[in-house]
Computed example of a mutant assay.
Amino acid sequence: MEMRSVPPVASALAPVPTTLETAAIVGRANPPRRQIPGTELRVFPTAMSGKHFGSSVSDAAVGEILDAYTALGGNMIDTADAYGEGRSEQLIGDWMRRRGNRDGLVVATKVGKSAAHPGLSATAITAAVDASLRRLGTDRIDLLYLHVDDTEVPFEETLLAVDGLIRRGKVLTFGMSDHTGNRLLAARVACGLLGVAPMTALQNQYSLMHRVGYEKGPAGVALQQGLAIMPRFPLADGFLTGEYRTRADLASAPSPAYIAPHLGRRGRRVLAALERVASELDASLAGVAIAWLLSRPGVIAPVVEVRSADQLFDVMAAPDLRPTRHQLAALDRASA
């Protein structure tokens, strides 16, 4: 993103930069942080996804996005060894080396789905983590996710392998991605019996358009265990930005197959509620959708996807929004 310069003398006709625009130029003072329970990690309440880095997001755009994200106060980058067949990790690692900012970031990655090291056997996990460390150009992964529920491998083997990586300092803490409540409970029991490091985070799909799968599934177990909830697809693949309302709009959507199911009555009801709240808060629909998530129990940092740096302003404003209980209740009703 081409950063705008601030003239030495502001013109009377020139627009006054917003707080976030100023932050993108000079940096954001005292950005908000939330602690991942059971760790010393404190993260900005919006994590940056590297899912499309190296595939639909160009190398140059990756650098622009990460520069703008950190200038706006962001400090958590979320990727996976399977994203772009490792290209996402490589680009993030290259950017961290150029900026020399690794120690100021919380880096999360996932293992289990890559073609080179599939599954969650001890051998696969160890090899996958070593490969991720090389691509990221770092000596440790702050938060390692198990990217798949590999039921063919006993939890004991997986958890002992992860614990070994934690003991060697290659991983600081770990979590799970897309696991059911029953599997979370089984993993916690296994951790206790083995005396190994407990999991601290869960990344499942969760948004105003995707509530039942999480809230009626693993939510109760996750909250009981005090896990940090890191929702993925918090904007329902872009639907909650309000840009895609008809079948014709899908022609310009990056993920039309995922957005199409939301174009019915419930989707229109949710967008209408978002529009009312956004108008009252003088905010974007995307910002309000993420602010709603940040009000939910256990949610620490929704993981957002952007394809250009200028898409960051709306999502990075979300932690500063303060929806009232009445406004949150209206969103709850519309999305029920």
Rank of each mutant, 00 (worst) to 15 (best):
Y83V: 00
P45G: 06
I77L: 11
E64M: 05
R28E: 07
Y83P: 07
A71E: 12
R97H: 14
G86D: 03
G63P: 10
T46F: 13
A61H: 00
A80H: 02
S56A: 13
G112L: 00
E85R: 12
L41W: 07
V57M: 01
I92R: 03
G104E: 03
K110D: 10
Y83A: 06
N101L: 08
G63C: 10
A29I: 11
S58K: 12
F53R: 03
I65D: 01
P31M: 13
S56D: 13
R97E: 11
T70C: 06
T46S: 13
I92P: 14
G50H: 03
A47E: 01
W95I: 10
G86T: 00
R98F: 05
G63N: 09
E85T: 13
T39C: 07
G27Y: 04
V57D: 02
S58W: 14
P37S: 14
P31S: 11
P45Q: 02
V111E: 02
V107H: 08
D59V: 09
E64G: 13
K51L: 14
A60W: 02
E40G: 14
I77M: 13
L91I: 02
R97P: 12
D94W: 06
G104Q: 04
S55H: 05
G100Y: 11
K51W: 15
I65K: 00
I92L: 09
M76F: 09
S88A: 15
P32D: 09
W95G: 15
G84I: 03
S55E: 05
A60F: 05
N30K: 11
K51P: 06
G112F: 01
L91G: 07
D103F: 02
N30S: 15
R98S: 15
P31F: 04
M96N: 06
D67R: 12
R42I: 06
M48S: 10
S56N: 12
Q35M: 06
E89K: 11
V62Y: 05
N75Y: 01
V26H: 10
G93W: 13
A24P: 04
K51M: 14
A68I: 05
T46G: 13
S49P: 09
D81Y: 00
T39L: 05
